[in-house]
Structure formats: C-alpha cells, structure tokens
Amino acid sequence: MRVHLALASVLLSPMLHADSLPADKPTLEVWPQICVAVPETPCKLDLQLKWRGTSHNRICILSDNAQFTRWCNDSNAVHSLTLNITTDKDIQFEMVDPETNRIIADAKFRVTQLSEPQKRRRYRNPWSLF
C-alpha cells in the first residue's frame, strides 16, 4: 500500500505543480513527458497536451514533427488535445497566437532509448588450460 501511495505522489507531482502556477502566465504541458523506447522500436502512445492561462480566444499548436499538422481551436473553452503518436525522436510543441504567430508557450516530449546491457569480457584466453 505504501508503494502505491508513493508512486501516485510521484506521478501526480507535475500536475500538482502546474496547478500552483500563477494563472496569468500561459503554460503548455505534455503528459507523459518522456518515453523509454527499446532500441529499433518507436514509442507508441496517446500524448495529451494541456494549456492554461491564455487570454487569447484562439490558439494554435505546432510541432517540429512532420506527422502533426497545425491544430487550432475555435473557442476558449477547449484546453486540451490528445494525439496518438509513434516516434523515436523528441518532439517540440509550441502554442502560438494565430494572428501574430507569436509563441505563447512551449513544451517538449522526450524519447530516451533503453541501452543494451554490456557484454562481459572473458579475461582469460579460450585456449588456456588453467
């Protein structure tokens, strides 16, 4: 039980921190923030973008990944976007004012490759009799 509570507090801590930010500073959050991938296998998951603190009625979300096109909301009531991603590289997201193309906030999704275990080296020669 104690392990589950500790894990829950670790997983929720970024969300709790984001709620404590001032409302006047626009923020863009990516959840999850990181993916650990097996070598030669891309990350496949649903990525959630959340934003808050924008005074703009419309915002657009851009990324440096060609798989995602520019997305713009139509109302101030929309504060999240869920994307189904398949990638083996980091993705930078930017929240932009569509009228001025000024970057309001940004966030980065990181991909980390899991390293293969190192092979042990034999210290003696294979032909040694001792």
Rank of each mutant, 00 (worst) to 15 (best):
P126C: 01
R121T: 13
A23I: 13
A105D: 09
L21Q: 15
H79N: 12
F130T: 07
K50V: 10
W51C: 04
I103Y: 04
P42E: 03
D74Y: 09
Q118D: 10
T69C: 05
L62K: 11
S55Y: 12
E99F: 07
C60E: 08
L47P: 02
W31H: 06
P22T: 11
E116I: 06
I34N: 06
V10P: 01
P42Q: 03
E40V: 09
I59V: 15
L16N: 05
Q118M: 13
L12V: 06
Q113K: 15
T69H: 05
P26G: 10
H17C: 06
P42K: 03
V36S: 03
N73E: 01
K108L: 14
A105C: 13
S63D: 04
T100P: 06
F68A: 05
H79I: 07
C43F: 02
T100C: 10
S115M: 02
A107R: 03
M1W: 06
L21N: 11
N65H: 13
T41P: 00
P117Y: 03
P126M: 04
W51V: 02
S13W: 11
V111W: 00
K89H: 10
K50H: 13
L45D: 08
H4Q: 08
L7D: 06
A18L: 01
H17Y: 13
D90E: 11
D19G: 03
S9A: 14
R121D: 05
E94Y: 11
P39N: 01
T27P: 02
S63L: 02
F130S: 14
H79V: 09
T82Q: 09
T41G: 01
G53R: 10
V78D: 12
N76I: 14
A23F: 09
